[in-house]
Simulated scan of single mutants.
Amino acid sequence: MAGRKDSLPGYRLSAVAIDDPAVVATGGKTQHPIVSRSGSPDDMVAGAVLAVTPDELHDPDRYEVAAYRRQSVTLASGTLAWAYVDARDAPPSAS
């Protein structure tokens, strides 16, 4: 799957413990990366933008554990995209 580089400002990358045995079996790891909103414009998480169909978007929805929430974000390029972020973060308020 081809993508283009972009980044997510105001977030930082960390790790989250995964205790769902099915997810650990599928991913092979008990720690997965997670992005959390920091609110600092100096923080940025590098990544890639992928074009996916609505059906493809629902596959990760079924896989992700409760630690993640799919949220609309604005990338450094100005592109609106879906990202799986730390579910403990409050969603940004609509302005």
Rank of each mutant, 00 (worst) to 15 (best):
V35D: 02
L75R: 02
S38T: 15
G10R: 07
P9F: 05
M44Q: 10
T74Y: 03
V73E: 00
D20M: 07
R37F: 06
G10C: 06
V49Q: 08
A90P: 02
V35R: 04
P54A: 02
V85P: 05
Y84T: 09
P41N: 15
T53N: 01
H58F: 00
A25V: 06
G47T: 04
T74H: 05
G28L: 04
Y11S: 07
L80C: 02
S95I: 03
I18T: 15
S72R: 12
D61V: 01
A51Q: 12
G39V: 01
V85D: 03
V85A: 10
V24D: 07
A76E: 06
V73I: 09
M1R: 06
D42L: 03
D43L: 09
S14N: 05
G28M: 08
V16N: 04
D61G: 00
S38Q: 08
I34Y: 07
P21M: 12
I18N: 14
L8W: 06
D61N: 03
A22G: 05
T26M: 14
E64Y: 12
K29W: 08
S93N: 09
G47I: 02
V45D: 12
T53W: 00
D20C: 13
A51C: 07
D59S: 07
V73M: 05
D59R: 13
P33H: 11
L75F: 01
L75C: 02
M1V: 12
A67R: 07
G27H: 11
L57K: 08
D86M: 07
P60K: 03
R37W: 04
D61M: 06
I34Q: 10
E64V: 15
V23N: 06
E56D: 15
A2Y: 07
D59G: 02
T26R: 13
A87R: 11
R62E: 13
A2Q: 12
D19A: 13
L80T: 09
A22Q: 12
G10K: 09
S77W: 00
A25H: 08
R37V: 04
D59W: 06
Q71R: 15
S72W: 03
D89R: 12
A66M: 08
S36C: 07
E56Y: 10
Q71Y: 00
Q71A: 10
L13A: 09
A48R: 14
R69C: 02
S36H: 14
L57G: 09
L75Q: 01
R70S: 04
L50E: 10
D43F: 11
V16E: 03
D89F: 12
A48K: 05
E56Q: 15
Y11C: 12
A25M: 11
A87H: 09
A94M: 14
P92K: 03
H32F: 11
